[in-house]
Design a protein around this nucleic acid. Structure first.
Lengths: 210, 210
DNA sequence: GTAAATAGTGAATCATTATTCATTCTTTGT
DNA sequence: ACAAAGAATGAATAATGATTCACTATTTAC
């Protein structure tokens, strides 16, 4: 008959958690997972190191959550592009462009999501993330096949190839040793890198030169 | 006027070094880089831990060398396939098949080379390795373009996409959590996975359905 | 055989951070 | 105001394995 968790407390805790998440996100966006120290995160969030562990089982779990979060944003954007107007092929093209352009705009985070060496739990999230893209693409490919704008093919396999082709094409340009920041001025639709990635992908999909 | 390195000694050292390399290779082929312990390697090679360090600056350097070695074998095989008879498109197809089939035959090593999280120096080797493939493919694509069996395109970009598409397609099947060993009986030319990867790739290249 | 030089050894050290937990501080209900 | 419960703290700990280095053994040249 004394202390019982009250709404106020619940909120305060939720805020602290959110702060931790945000600061971790920031650290990762700055220097990737590997260099994000629990101590620094705690410092930024204005809590003690130990407090992190009242909210997350472990550093890895925290990272996994951050990965999921960052990932979800990207996947949502691609899903959005795929939900727009037009036939399957057109929508896929828009989605691929979205993916690539967003990555080039936030290169450090994109690199961390796509290629940074990470611990097993986070790597698992990465597999899920790639699968999520592949699933989205797969659906669109199937639709394209039904509509007749994409020839019949193993939609699952093709979607995996799309993910691989685009990710690989980005690894070089994104890798921290290469990146000198300045790519943020990327004009939409104009990056020749993005254009040639997309050409290959669409050709692989449709078997049609353009 | 006493000891001077003699041929006999040079050989003995070379042998020890080779033994270390071989044992490391074996460890990696069994459990990947991450789980390969310097102590165990030394034990297998029949030398003291410290001896490793008379031959290699650090564990990372040792690993980098093993990576280079393993990689060279694979790259050579692909180069060989690309040097065979036929037009560019045919040779590329053979090369892609070679790549995929060999990977499926030695899944743990292939996974380590393609997707295992590794330290920076080794990651650098991985970038070089992927670039080596891309270079080979690029050359073949250019030849194909000249021969007229592949339409004009950005050969460099296409080669990168090829590497990505094939690597991504293999990550799932290769990943240690998925692999239950048994794929070694892969009959040549018959694995449907390999076939559909290749179909996508060749289509992306030639813009021609088959 | 001897001394100089190098090679080999492996137990002890080191370095790095994530994680813990005894303690202090806050909140709550009476 | 008090006690019960929980939350927060952060200095101390722990765990892990790579790396070192003082020492021993071996090789060579004379």
């Amino acid at each position: 008959m004394a202390y019982r968790e009250t709404e106020k407390m619940r909120q305060r805790k939720a805020e602290a958690r959110k702060r931790i998440v945000n600061c971790t996100y920031q650290c990762v966006a700055e220097g990737g997972f590997r260099s994000a120290r629990v101590t620094r995160i705690a410092g930024l969030a204005g809590v003690a190191t130990g407090t992190i562990y009242r909210h997350f089982e472990s550093r890895e779990d925290l990272f996994a959550e951050i990965f999921r979060l960052a990932t979800q944003r990207e996947v949502d954007k691609v899903a959005e592009a795929l939900a727009s107007a037009g036939n399957g092929a057109e929508r896929l093209e828009r989605a691929l462009r979205q993916f690539a352009e967003r990555a080039l705009k936030g290169p450090q985070m994109a690199w961390s999501l796509i290629a940074e060496p990470v611990d097993p739990k986070v790597e698992e999230e990465r597999l899920a993330y790639r699968k999520a893209y592949a699933n989205l693409f797969e659906k669109a490919i199937r639709e394209g096949i039904e509509e007749g704008c994409i020839p019949d093919q193993d939609a699952r396999q093709s979607s995996t190839c799309l993910v691989g082709a685009i990710a690989e094409s980005l690894v070089g340009p994104l890798s921290p040793t290469q990146t000198s920041q300045g790519n943020s001025a990327t004009q939409d639709n104009n990056d020749p890198l993005v254009n040639s990635i997309i050409r290959f992908c669409m050709q692989g999909l449709t078997g049609t030169r353009r």
